[in-house]
Design a protein around this nucleic acid. Structure first.
Lengths: 219, 219
DNA sequence: GTTTTTCATTCTGTATACTGTTTGGAAATC
DNA sequence: GATTTCCAAACAGTATACAGAATGAAAAAC
């Protein structure tokens, strides 16, 4: 959304700040996002705030009520289930398409894995995990797969953030599991067939989802 | 996006009018969409026009250049190819999920088919065709499948509109083919297994795509 | 004749002001 | 005390105004 050496526009900076507040947990799901208040807080007029709200609606972090008021999106377990179904429809196909490219060059995935080994905070690990999957989507060469992913990513990050706040998951154990799985996926891209990669990604997503303690009916 | 008995807001009406202009072919792909000019033409201020542009960007009908100017989206054959790949990833899965619901009640699909039999214009047939697929996505019960579809639908309609303008396709013959295929799909939903429906939808999309004279490298 | 520079025009980005609607609570009524 | 009515504050939708950037054509330089 920016062009040259990018002095961020006020809209962009408002978008970033609001996104950070939402994903960082400073704003609870369901919180009212009043334009005037945010405009004052960010030191800009209502116009850039408005655009930020629309932009974040596209990212799935904000939803508008019937009267046009914006709220931090409230995600239900069913929402998360839906996202998972969608991932299973998209990512394996994307992996198959990406396989030829990633066989030649998987360095980006490896750099991601290395960063994840060094990562400290839960938040950072979550983000790198999502980045890993995004890299595969991007390598599919299909801009629209990536666009769809971007639409889901915000919601995934939002949900996972809430999950981590409610439980104390993402322990050492699960981190290692993720590291191993991602390593195996990289290996697969390097040496196995496209359909093998497709299958492995499907298993990875499915397994990860089944492990998550989402079955609790959360508020 | 509207609430009660809906007196359409100026943003909404600007969005509708602009969408109609783009899909109707009044504005060629690549045409500059200057805010001031449109504001005058629609008799509103620039603010609603702005929101219309953002809304239509979400629908894939408008794209923004690096300097923030809006243009009617230019679709390349590759774009269409990408959309097709995406459909193959989404729709068969959605059809499988929708199967239980549609087995019980396929009346909406039948009404669509009946309307298509009566349809006169190419534009109308195209729209009903897309509606048919949208009904299946909606019946999947997964809001996000529908959201993704909406994102593709505008682009599909835009591409097909251009295609029909360039060629004189969608003849009697192809209309009958579509009618038959849709009829068979309804039958399948009524009496066959979910995986059969999934397979049939995949074949339908694949076959339709292969038939289309998109292989010509168009401008 | 070709290239570069200049500059008026046009466009977007943003601020501010105004209007009508929604909302939550105080006051009035039962 | 419970319910309804009414009003002020808060909020979104929109118009208008202005500033800064991009654009393209005319003018200048080569």
């Amino acid at each position: 959304m920016k062009n040259t050496i990018s002095l961020a526009s006020r809209s962009d900076s408002a978008t970033s700040r609001l996104r950070a507040d939402i994903l960082g947990g400073a704003l609870d799901p369901g919180a009212l996002l009043a334009e005037t208040a945010m405009a004052e807080r960010f030191g800009v007029s209502r116009v850039p705030v408005r655009e930020a709200l629309f932009a974040l609606e596209r990212e799935g972090l904000v939803e508008f009520g019937t009267t046009g008021r914006a709220f931090v999106k409230v995600l239900t377990p069913q929402d998360f289930q839906e996202l998972h179904t969608l991932r299973l429809a998209l990512e394996p196909t994307a992996a198959r398409l990406a396989a030829p490219r990633l066989r030649k060059d998987s360095s980006a995935l490896e750099r991601n894995l290395a960063a994840m080994r060094r990562a400290k905070s839960v938040r950072q690990i979550t983000r790198l995990d999502l980045d890993f999957h995004e890299l595969i989507l991007a390598a599919s060469g299909n801009k629209r797969f990536l666009a769809m992913w971007r639409l889901m990513r915000g919601e995934l990050e939002l949900w996972l953030g809430g999950l981590h706040r409610r439980h104390q998951i993402r322990t050492e154990h699960t981190l290692n599991e993720t590291l191993e799985a991602h390593g195996a996926i990289i290996q697969c891209f390097r040496s196995q067939s496209a359909t093998s990669c497709e299958r492995l990604i499907r298993q990875h997503i499915q397994g990860w989802f089944e492990w998550l303690p989402t079955l609790e009916v959360t508020p």
